[in-house]
């Protein structure tokens, strides 16, 4: 136990929060949640080469790049925190579901790390069974030495409204009217992570484009723009991509779209096909899909982006016209 916590009589703990996957977007929520319960929360920070490599070593090799990065984040917290917190995101609201890998994530990481440290988890499954959340919160309360009511209240007031937030914390703040726009699509923990995305957004901005992502569109608009589908629920990030792409495709300044996907991503294989179908049958804008995994080289990646930008029609003139 850290010395500055020694004076506290309760089972105060240092909670480690790995900054990957869904927590990438919601780390502030969880940090606030644990701090409101009197704990100290440590985040794992940006993805580094070291984190990435340890994740690749620890994980089963079939899993995707972001899960490997996540495991690396969790491993980097061993020794820095009393326990590692991994929420089990099955679905954040009704009629939406997460990637199946999130449902088993706490167990997967626990086994990959060989039970080296203690783990805390919260079940989030509002589509199938919201009672599970309450149960897991009560267990968490026991672990933290707090009353179940305090923990439930903290969850309801701090975390719950942010799980399906209307405005994403990753929205871009800059707005230059007139500049040609490139839409970057992809899971938030891929496109906003500098290492995993090889700074895709930065590179496009340096080339003189304004970059917009589905997360610049309000959540309700993203949902409204999704065409009806047969099943009663859809993948959450899938909805973000489909609705976001549909909202962005109508921007007059839109010059092209880039979809960044991790190798063998199940959700993207489905969503990409639907988006491509839309683009083929609607406004035909240039579309680049880039698939990356831990073996991707940055030079090849850059070449593909350059080739795509060179191919875009008349963006130079669009830019000039708008400025004049």
């Amino acid at each position: 136990m850290k010395s500055h916590h020694g004076a506290e009589p309760s089972k105060l703990k240092v909670i480690g929060i790995p900054e990957g996957l869904m927590i990438f977007e919601q780390k502030q929520l969880w940090k606030k949640f644990f701090e409101s319960l009197g704990c100290h929360a440590v985040c794992s920070g940006h993805t580094t080469k070291r984190i990435m490599n340890s994740g690749i070593e620890l994980c089963c090799n079939e899993t995707c790049l972001p899960v490997k990065a996540f495991t690396g984040h969790a491993a980097s917290l061993c020794g820095k925190a009393d326990c590692i917190f991994i929420p089990r995101y099955s679905s954040v609201c009704s009629h939406e579901k997460s990637c199946p890998k999130f449902c088993g994530l706490p167990d997967e990481v626990r086994i990959s790390l060989n039970n080296k440290t203690k783990f805390l988890e919260i079940d989030i499954d509002f589509n199938r069974d919201s009672k599970k959340t309450q149960k897991s919160l009560d267990l968490l309360a026991g672990e933290l030495g707090r009353s179940p009511k305090t923990v439930r209240d903290a969850f309801d007031s701090i975390v719950k409204p942010g799980l399906a937030a209307e405005v994403s914390p990753n929205r871009s703040c800059s707005y230059e009217p007139g500049a040609p726009v490139l839409a970057v699509l992809g899971h938030p923990y891929m496109i906003f992570d500098r290492l995993l995305s090889m700074n895709l957004i930065g590179k496009l901005q340096d080339a003189g484009y304004r970059v917009m992502t589905p997360y610049d569109v309000r959540r309700s608009v993203r949902r409204k723009n999704v065409a009806p589908f047969l099943s009663d629920s859809f993948f959450e990030t899938g909805l973000d991509m489909l609705g976001g792409a549909q909202a962005l495709v109508n921007l007059p300044e839109l010059a092209g779209m880039v979809y960044l996907s991790s190798f063998a991503c199940g959700i993207d294989s489905l969503v990409l096909e639907i988006i491509e179908h839309k683009i083929r049958n609607g406004r035909r804008i240039p579309f680049l899909k880039i698939t990356i995994d831990e073996h991707s080289g940055e030079a090849g990646f850059d070449t593909r982006i350059e080739a795509f930008l060179d191919m875009l029609p008349n963006t130079e003139s669009i830019r000039r016209e708008k400025i004049v």
Binding site: K97, L230, S231, D232, L270, E273, I274, H277
Partner: peptide, 22 residues
């Protein structure tokens, strides 16, 4: 048909129809 689960089978129907229509 389609399933209701967390696997891609839930969306086979949408995709099959899209592709066959195309």
């Amino acid at each position: 048909g389609n399933s209701r689960g967390q696997c891609r089978l839930s969306h086979y129907g949408d995709l099959l129809q899209n592709i066959l229509h195309d």
